[in-house]
Write a protein that binds this DNA or RNA. Sequence first.
DNA 1: ACTGTTAGTTAAACTTACTAACAAAGTTAT
DNA 2: ATAACTTTGTTAGTAAGTTTAACTAACAGT
Lengths: 393, 393
Amino acid sequence: MRVPRKTGNSKLVKKLNKEEVLQQVIQHGQISRADISKQTQLSRPCVSALVDEMIQEGLLQEVGMGDSRGGRKPILLEYNYQAYAIAGAIFEGSTLDMTIANLKGEFMARCRKRLDQPANGERVIEDLVAGLTRLLADSGMSHDQLLGMGVGLQGVTQRGQGTVSFSPSTGWMDSPIQEALEARLGVPVIIDNDVNLMTLGEYVRGVGVGHSHVVYMYVGTGIGAGVILDGQFYRGSREAAGEIGFMMIGPEQHRRNGASGVFETHYSVPGIMQQAEGVLSDLQEGSSVIEELILHARAGSVQAQTLLDDVYRHWAYGMANIVSILNPELLILSGEMVHIDDEGVKKIQEWLTEWVPKVPCLKKATLGEQAGLIGAVHSVLEAFPSTRLLDKA
Amino acid sequence: MRVPRKTGNSKLVKKLNKEEVLQQVIQHGQISRADISKQTQLSRPCVSALVDEMIQEGLLQEVGMGDSRGGRKPILLEYNYQAYAIAGAIFEGSTLDMTIANLKGEFMARCRKRLDQPANGERVIEDLVAGLTRLLADSGMSHDQLLGMGVGLQGVTQRGQGTVSFSPSTGWMDSPIQEALEARLGVPVIIDNDVNLMTLGEYVRGVGVGHSHVVYMYVGTGIGAGVILDGQFYRGSREAAGEIGFMMIGPEQHRRNGASGVFETHYSVPGIMQQAEGVLSDLQEGSSVIEELILHARAGSVQAQTLLDDVYRHWAYGMANIVSILNPELLILSGEMVHIDDEGVKKIQEWLTEWVPKVPCLKKATLGEQAGLIGAVHSVLEAFPSTRLLDKA
DNA sequence: ACTGTTAGTTAAACTTACTAACAAAGTTAT
DNA sequence: ATAACTTTGTTAGTAAGTTTAACTAACAGT
């Protein structure tokens, strides 16, 4: 763990002030030197000097005059969002989704590619490189401007170490993939679990905007959660926070060491499918269990309705536990949960109100498959705050 | 919410450097100017200037010479832990426990007092004032040196607002007690729940030392938990984090709006007592249910053993849920749980290993009734880091 | 006694932000 | 139209802090 230097000299002061000036420009979109001075309490000459330097460095631009407020017109400044670029990549099943974004996090180019199956680790790296090269060309950015790349994948990742221990869809197993990619791409790389990145995506651009205590609950092949506390992603002592599939919810079976957790076994998509065997004769590829169950229930199937209620109720148990421990202000439902109908949401909400004192807001995820890419881009953006851009220039 | 000024001038630098110098002295106990310079990367003249100022302010002292390392002997510096004092108070049942501590958190004087029952809010405040006056006299500190007071009580507190909404033992109901106390005592006051303060106590001086992801699980009249994540106390969006009594563990009963949670109802001390009615004929005041159950079980009572196992198992469910969500590195068992015998702990540990992938260390609380007072003192100590002492001087 | 080393201090240089004064470019009132 | 006032941005000099370089003090080993 690198301890940040706590001591400072005048250089530090300058850096801090520059950062704050940049922050003001980003926050206000367009702002004059005089207004920055008012906002930051820095003297006008000081702001001018800092701004001039940052214009030299290419981080800021003068973009015309503002309206007069009784005196000389202000020169408006803007952040140059095109100064650097960020790459994002998400592996979803056997497809690789990539994007290039500017410093605002806006996508400037995208591409998608099918991966050969079974996946070959080496080959996948080359696919990433090829995609990146193409995206850089499409977006008109140069490799020098690339700050880094965020990569999300289904599987078990150790973001802290930059390693992946289990990821069949990419063919990466127990490998220090971050290092390998950084060496090959020549830029910093962040590796993370796709649920974590989706969480981040919804937090910065989706339903999570404006909240600082958010839990993103995902039900798919497995059950997991992304946890944001006090505006910070929480990962746990060994990066296993949010592994809510292991909660003791549902019929407990003995001796299920390793593998999946109790909650996950019964109430993830495969778990529900198994329970639904008698009810849903056959489920076609690509359709949702919950949707099907809802259809059958509406058509009068008591069995379907019973199963649905059971699933909702146990999902609500999970939520109640999360809420009891973390007291979030927002719970985002994603994955299979987005198919819950209004009636279902209402039921769950009523149960929670009955069970726990401080019920958070419940909202379904809204960004769909974009969430992961947005999160990937923002994970890099977070690792490169304005601070580090100033160093780079 | 007050936004901390992010911009800086030379004053800020000086403050930062002074803080860091102070930090080094605190960390090393005794250290010379030269060594501080090496540790902090500040130049020797600079360190000398800062140290001299702090000696003037009474925060540091020269305490003799160190051994020569081939040249002139170093002058050793020490932090003046007696420069300021901190008061702590804990209400436990109908007794008020108070202390005065130095800046190291060491108790310099203590006193205990029985409160009249039923408690009268006004009267209790005067008891606090009286106790404080006496402790200041006993410890030889002056009121000017008092930095603040930490107060812990059983009940529902809103530390952020400094209010108490429900606390029968002190007679404070729905009152802005922090403000009242600050006005009466003339120093900053921190009000918090006793479980939170015990958590903090065990974290800084008990079994939690050296860990940064700790959950302190308390079973008493109710069930609650204190949560420390990444070295920071986590309170939740509406100060309701750690309200684990509301987890959905145990037989679910309908319509139990408000009041206590499902887990709490069945597995807190009163809950267990109720279940034990047939087993333990009568329980004398002041003894522990778990101890009694263990005794009966050892004496051959199958019923007692069954109930004990059931309790352990459900407590373990709670732990599993906590661990799944938070992935702490340490789980502190306190309250009634300290009476679990080794066999019981082992059982719980085995269950957890079976259920969840990353089992934390399980340890019983060790500080006993001291924990709360230590936490109370440290809550003030945290609110007055070296930063603010420098401002004060 | 001489050399080499460590601790602490003094003096000048350097970096940064601040204040005060000023120039530029507007608006408003007469 | 002109003068007075405002707001914006810049220039010049000052103040506060840290750093470097040199110096004194004090000590160990030979």
